[in-house]
Design a protein around this nucleic acid. Structure first.
Lengths: 342, 342
DNA sequence: ACTGGAAAGTAACACGTGTTACCAAAGAAA
DNA sequence: TTTCTTTGGTAACACGTGTTACTTTCCAGT
């Protein structure tokens, strides 16, 4: 292997016949220093000829900045596997980072052992942390925030002052359930997307409840079944729900993936969608439009979520303030044939 | 914000009353140096008290290693959005990295402007590169490899010596099509997962062809339609395929997501699956089991792919050799009801 | 001719770490 | 006592960069 040594700014200086300081001034376009055009050109030519790329370790050491953000995923592996939402979010984060010259360090952690990401910041690996799916009991996170570490959440953490970006899942869920109500359904079941320890599950449940209350319909806890990201959990939950008498005529499933399992359970029971059972999902995964029947669902701006979160974290890192402390992105109801016949 | 200055090894040395060298020796468990137990304890206590975490920039600078691998995704945003395969792969990479004390830097790039990842290695951001979905015409990649940069591919790049890990998609596709043939189908269409410029698409087409040849069935180019990751492309392609007379009785769709669209087209045409049209997919995404009908498909070890690729790249970085130059992981046919009635 | 000031560039330090070469003391062997 | 070895530890350099303070040269203003 040839593998020539990487060239340093000293090499460039030597070739250009100037000091290393001058090289730094030229290459970084430092304001307030004057360099003659001829010298500037000599430096640039030398840099090009040597294929010079500044070593980030050196920059990092002297500046104390790493120009890297840590994207910490608290989802369980099970969730990551089935989550069609995540890639879009990550892409959004990445684009925001690139636009500001930042890199993204990926760090999925086991949600049960919180705080595994602290070393990222303490060892100066990253300048700030973007946390997806924060756990309620994550005290290490709050401590980090109070130390002044730039942190941005995707998803909310009640009772803390940590800024976040989130989709307005509550409003979205309410819209979905209101939609079902407007179609004449009076007895509507719900299947959660995840155990209720997750705030995302709670928000959606709250939306369900609000829609019922707004229509003066009774809120019956026994009509709620718990899912856990997977289609199979949806199948189980729906099967349970079908046992209840009098039967529900519609169901709000707080995740498209889980809804897929629910649909199968409904079909197995010999019922038709939407005639015998209307179904509304949540997330608007790319496949939802191709479900059988096409799934009424709530579209979440996944890409926008990632982008906004990344953008705002970087602003925090730079010490620029945020004009609003936190951000709720709008979701949008997409009515398809699983809830009514066109 | 309190934000106490991060403590350095000098602080630890001062508190413990020893030299910084000793601190380094103790904390890194350097072999061949003797440190008395009492001194060792004093250092460890001091480090704990100051909550000392070594600054990674310093380590990086002096060692030249970053203990980070770059995960470069060449997929188009469109593909990333719909790819249910990707999160599993990434998780596998991540786990392999963690196990060896490495970090993962995520870098999705526009497939059209190749080589955007070279700066990662030149600036010493990462020790090696894991490239997913390499493009055929990526000459910058080959040059990098020849410079001795540790590189591992996920997916193959013909005519190069760069080591790779891949799933044996050809064998998988052949198994799926052979399965259809064994059920008595003589006229079998195909829808690709992506344009044929992608090697992954070519491999699957080759498997399709090999299965036909092995059964002495004619290989008819006109029975192949091109998909591009999305369900809608599958819908279009299947619609085209249904126009052809005599009609095919089975179709191999080289992606489950694309197959979802194909299924809809078949239903819209008033045909039943599998009675009028048998369907086999590819990828075994988590939802495939819940398609209507459940989709016969080929399971790919996505997690294992990521894990193996990460593991082997790190071995390369460490200078340990690979016992086999490259690796093909087995895929597995999963027969469900879209191809035959149980 | 003298002063002031801008232009062009440099020496030297700082960042935090790993590591090599070296030193001092204590004990063992002669 | 002298010499050699081991134990326990340190001073000093290297890594590659950004930046501050300083020097030199040259030209304009009086």
């Amino acid at each position: 292997m040839p593998s020539k040594k990487r060239s340093t700014s000293t090499d460039v200086a030597k070739l250009a016949g100037v000091s290393r300081t001058t090289v730094s001034f030229v290459l970084n376009d430092v304001l307030g220093v004057s360099i003659s055009d001829v010298t500037r050109k000599r430096v640039l030519d030398a840099a090009r000829e040597l294929d010079y790329h500044p070593n980030v370790a050196g920059k990092k050491l002297v500046s104390g900045k790493s120009y890297t953000i840590g994207l910490v995923l608290c989802q369980s592996p099970e969730q990551i596997f089935t989550d069609a939402f995540l890639p879009q979010v990550m892409l959004g984060v990445e684009q925001a980072a690139i636009q500001h010259g930042f890199h993204v360090l990926l760090k999925p952690i086991d949600p049960n052992e919180a705080g595994g990401y602290a070393s990222l910041i303490r060892e100066n690996h990253v300048d700030g942390i973007l946390l997806s799916g924060p756990r309620q009991d994550d005290t290490a996170l709050v401590r980090l925030y109070e130390e002044g570490v730039p942190i941005m959440l995707m998803g909310q953490l009640p009772d803390t002052a940590i800024p976040f970006v989130d989709v307005d899942a509550t409003a979205g869920a309410q819209a979905a359930v209101s939609h079902l109500i407007s179609l004449g359904h009076l007895r509507i079941g719900m299947i959660t997307n995840a155990p209720l320890t997750y705030t995302s599950a709670q928000q959606r449940r709250t939306g369900y409840r609000q829609a019922l209350l707004a229509a003066r319909l009774p809120f019956d806890e026994s009509l709620i079944q718990e899912g856990n990201y997977t289609p199979s959990s949806g199948f189980e939950a729906m099967s349970e729900l079908l046992e209840i008498s009098p039967r529900v005529t519609a169901v709000f499933v707080a995740s498209d993936v889980v809804a897929m399992g629910a649909l199968l359970a409904i079909k197995r029971a010999g019922l038709r969608v939407p005639q015998d059972m209307a179904v509304a999902g949540f997330d608007d995964i790319p496949l939802a439009e191709y479900f059988d029947p096409p799934l009424t669902t709530v579209h979440l701006p996944a890409y926008g979520l990632g982008w906004a979160a990344g953008e705002r974290l970087i602003r925090l890192i730079r010490g620029e303030g945020l004009n609003e402390h936190s951000l709720l992105l709008e979701s949008k109801l997409i009515a398809r044939q699983s809830s009514f016949i066109a």
